[in-house]
Design a protein around this nucleic acid. Sequence first.
DNA 1: CGTTAAATTGAAGATCGTCAACCAAGGTGG
DNA 2: CCACCTTGGTTGACGATCTTCAATTTAACG
Lengths: 255, 255
Amino acid sequence: MLMATPAPIATDDVEDVSAILLRRLRLLDRVSGGEAEVLRHAIQRVELVDADKVLIAAGTPLKRSVLLLDGFLARYKELPDGARQITDIHVPGDFVDLHGFLLKSIEHDVASLTAARVAYVPHTALTAITEHEPHLARLLWLTTLIDAAMQREHLLSIGRRSAVARVAHLFCELYCRMASVGLAENHSFTMQITQLDLADTTGLTSVHVNRMLRKLRDDGLMTFRNGLVELHDFTGLTEAAGFDPSYLTIASEPR
Amino acid sequence: MLMATPAPIATDDVEDVSAILLRRLRLLDRVSGGEAEVLRHAIQRVELVDADKVLIAAGTPLKRSVLLLDGFLARYKELPDGARQITDIHVPGDFVDLHGFLLKSIEHDVASLTAARVAYVPHTALTAITEHEPHLARLLWLTTLIDAAMQREHLLSIGRRSAVARVAHLFCELYCRMASVGLAENHSFTMQITQLDLADTTGLTSVHVNRMLRKLRDDGLMTFRNGLVELHDFTGLTEAAGFDPSYLTIASEPR
DNA sequence: CGTTAAATTGAAGATCGTCAACCAAGGTGG
DNA sequence: CCACCTTGGTTGACGATCTTCAATTTAACG
């Protein structure tokens, strides 16, 4: 993962690039060697992007989709008055705008929250997968459905949870997602995003997020400082959040 | 559609049953005669349900998916304290829990808001479509992606819009969706849901929804009484809502 | 009619936002 | 090398929006 202190990043190791996606898909179902090979060939180019760059502007016609390898991306919508709502925060291994494959253009922006490394998959390759690899196609479809499940949990948070619970819930979810791809352990991970990003995700103001983080810190549940997330009392945090990860961990049955 | 005053409902006209889904899909792309035939055979049973019935409880293993023919269904999540958040309101023609096909079980409940008529599609038929009808499979996938796009707009509403705007936006969206399947015209449609349902959708209380409806009525924008929705000043309402329907009307390109 | 669910309105209070000031850290240029 | 500039974080005071509580009205229905 990208560190606060610069770390060497391989930019063209395609083998490694497909690995994180495979790891993700294999949490959902068996992926055959042939399918893995098809995925490997579908991934075209690797690019580095700085923090706070718009990768995809709403409405742009799309011919390829973005796979996130390192760093954090966000999808968000904006109101005329400038208010921003982040609908999804993406972690490495996420097929960020796979839905753009069939939507042809997306109605929201995609931007980097931190420096990031991404790969591109042309839509022609995805069409071919739906034509010749139905099982793999179902798995890719499934990843977009899990995205939607996370959006629904997000709706529950913003619509019905208190401000503290929203912030706590977000970190519970991010920890689980990071851990599932091997980027978090011991209830800790690094994430160089701002409190304003958290506010735009939780539907709060940065001022209020700051107060809620302070409360969580005072209660000994977690800290978030300098991009380091530490969940000191994970059980207590999940209770404060009303967090139940079942929407993330899908029962493993053949698809 | 189901009326306040009972209307005759055909319960076994399978031809008619596939028609509303076809109409929906044909808004998105060309559907061949062969594909239409496959869909017709995929639809198995038609059932009537009363208002306020849980059709699918969260976590139940699923072997079939629900197609809504008449009336209104909702998908929602609940908090331990009983607070409810509706994530999606479904209108006739919606493939309500198509995502249950690959998720195998869904993490939220599906219930009827009004009396409704539904049809079932077995998952074996859907698997067959992904195996033998890739283009049709892409169209079905696309409908789940449009659901997710509506959820994102919903997130923007709850996270960043004022209470009046949220209510106004919801009715703008429902009108457009009803009109697209021929169930609304002249900026009016019938919908026998309660103000509590609206509250659980918009993340407000029923008391506050009531006040916002009053404001919209006083401003001459719309009325909602006895299940009759009338958008007296649609332009004004879209302005109050910040409504832009582009997330619903997908550019028609081959998929 | 009597009963129930839903809508309506008022009054009071809590949560969260706004405004404003200040601090800390890191980068830049004179 | 250090002033200074920018970005992000922190805190307090105050106010607005929305919730809560409660009472009353309306509508639907046997």
